[in-house]
Design a protein around this nucleic acid. Structure first.
Lengths: 350, 350
DNA sequence: CTGAAAGCGCTAACAA
DNA sequence: TTGTTAGCGCTTTCAG
């Protein structure tokens, strides 16, 4: 038992080790280990004595020692673009629920949208700190010497597909949902369209834009009928796109936003400028965040099954860990439309 | 749960160890270790040889071994009520930013609002898995045998104060902010008030309600002039409170909501019922979430410095770890009012 | 400045 | 069924 360390030395922790338990129960350390890992393999009497000793002392096995010896950590690394983004918070809950049941915990690898931060987590993974990696970033984290996919570590991707990754990928059907958006607008009679993008180059954004164009194209809408405003996945982008929209002489009557935040900010901005939604302009968002139904007008949006995305991906990752990698496979969950009051036919004559 | 991969041994990880580096560089393992931990202590020539060997092999020290030997993990456990709550997501970003600079990573202990889940994380902490614990829950997690504060582990609390915890606590000034809310309403001329609570018994909620009453009391408002609606910190609570509000014959003209979600849902619900905000009823929320300024009318709210709460608490925890515990101390960050369009004087004659 | 050697606490062969 | 024993890969005295 070491005493209070003055200068940054490790303080006293749970100082009771497997040795103490062994001594107290009058058995070997191996028996203690067995009792804890596999109770049925020891006699009832032994088990009882060991467990009593454990209870009396409040013993908990040292994880570092166990990890070192057993070569596993029961930890999963979750790499995500930005912890502050509420979207991922929901997904994380699904991930956590699934991991906890399997006895795993999660380490958060927050990139804060900075590519430079990737290397840190590659290092962490390479150091044997985790048993698996869940990618929410849509790309393979780059390390100093090796990349995340070069570690022989079980992986899975969620939310954003990673091109060329040989691992399970669980994503929403961005393209299909976006085709549905186009169809919905077309069905209402719109003829001039706008798209406010998410982060440039983001896989989801690319898919959504592509799907939207595809859907419009199928209805014979020419590409020139679509105005594109670049953005990112934040509220600010909606404000800026709306301002650009307002300066237009001949405005689109139907705008598709890459996420709900953008859509909500767009609505707010054009409303403040005196336009009416949906009479003057219809808007559809993406994600189906909770706030969508608490603004006025309520937002028409494509609902991503965030919790289920989290669960499914965690489950897939656990399977990778257990089965040693059943490997590549793409699971696309549908993102159904939730119709709100932000969409309507265009004003006559528009 | 099974521990070993079905098909034999654990998969190949970073198989290069300090031994390999030592051999390759023609030095002892001790020298390799020193070079990596403290480069200045070896000669330039030695350093160069070791670092080359490291670079050539892509060697990364095994963390479990290091943890075991060094008795530290460079991991912080963050216990939070609910990962899915966007409020905490922001705080987490502050925490992460601070931890990363100090070389720490974080493990998320998500309680999912379930007290029963606490024990799991007490165990994790007791197992030496982390160097410190950050509590966002407003209570001390209870374990099977011991509680979180009984582990001799550095701790800090953030967002919600933990009564009787001998550790730094970093919170927003709920009480002071709520007094300001009362004053603001009073200044506008209101005389009948409502309060929609957060989760029953939650420290923050208790403080906010107390502060609100205190502020009203100071202005001579009798307790009967305040209607209380129980809730939790979710949108749904705002809907329910609003419905109750609508049934009242003589309605409050000023409502204070324990968080912005509640306020937003309240506004939506009463607006849909034909009332005008703020003409018929003024509303103030708490937190200052981003959406507050993107609804109509924009929300008056008390802005919590979420990112800063995260940073400050992480910093305090790191100090605890380094200084061996400077201990108990309460830091209250101000939560300034952001005035929106949801507050105004009551209609004449009300 | 460097090397030898002793473990950190635990698990898993292998014996008994 | 249980004990003995040999490490897992690393850091850190203690000598040299």
């Amino acid at each position: 038992m070491n005493k209070a360390a003055p200068n940054g030395r490790p303080r006293a922790r749970s100082s009771v080790t497997i040795q103490h338990i062994a001594a107290r129960a009058g058995v070997s350390t191996a028996t203690v280990s067995r009792t804890l890992a596999n109770p049925d393999v020891v006699t009832a009497k032994t088990r009882e004595r060991v467990l009593r000793a454990v209870a009396e002392t409040g013993y908990t096995p040292n994880v570092a020692a166990r990890n070192l010896r057993a070569r596993r950590s029961m930890m999963i690394l979750v790499v995500l673009p930005n912890v502050a983004n509420p979207f991922f918070a929901q997904v994380l809950r699904g991930v956590d629920d699934e991991l906890v049941t399997a006895g795993y915990d999660m380490i958060i690898g927050n990139l804060d949208n900075l590519v430079a931060r990737e290397a840190r987590y590659v290092r962490l993974a390479q150091a044997g700190q985790v048993d698996g990696v869940l990618l929410m970033t849509g790309r393979i984290p780059k390390g100093d010497t090796r990349n995340m996919d070069d570690l022989g570590l079980p992986m899975a991707a969620v939310c954003a597909a990673v091109p060329g990754l040989a691992a399970p990928q669980i994503v929403a059907d961005d393209r299909g949902a976006s085709i549905a958006v186009a169809k919905h607008f077309i069905g209402l009679g719109h003829q001039r369209f706008g798209y406010v993008s998410g982060l440039q180059g983001n896989v989801n954004d690319v898919q959504r834009y592509a799907g939207f164009l595809e859907g419009l194209d199928a209805a014979g809408v020419p590409r020139e009928a679509v105005t594109y405003w670049p953005g990112d996945f934040n509220l600010r982008a909606g404000v800026e796109a709306a301002r650009a929209f307002l300066t237009l002489a001949e405005r689109p009557t139907a705008v598709y936003a890459a996420c709900d935040e953008i859509a909500i900010a767009f609505i707010k901005t054009v409303s403040d400028a005196g336009l009416e939604v949906p009479k003057d302009v219809s808007i559809i968002g993406f994600d189906g965040i909770e706030f969508a139904e608490f603004i006025s007008p309520t937002l028409t949006t494509m609902r991503q099954p965030r919790y289920e995305l989290g669960r499914a991906s965690a489950r897939a990752l656990l399977e990778e860990i257990q089965d040693g990698g059943t490997g590549e496979r793409l699971i696309e969950l549908p993102a159904p439309m939730v119709v709100g009051d932000s969409t309507a036919p265009p004003r006559p004559g528009r």
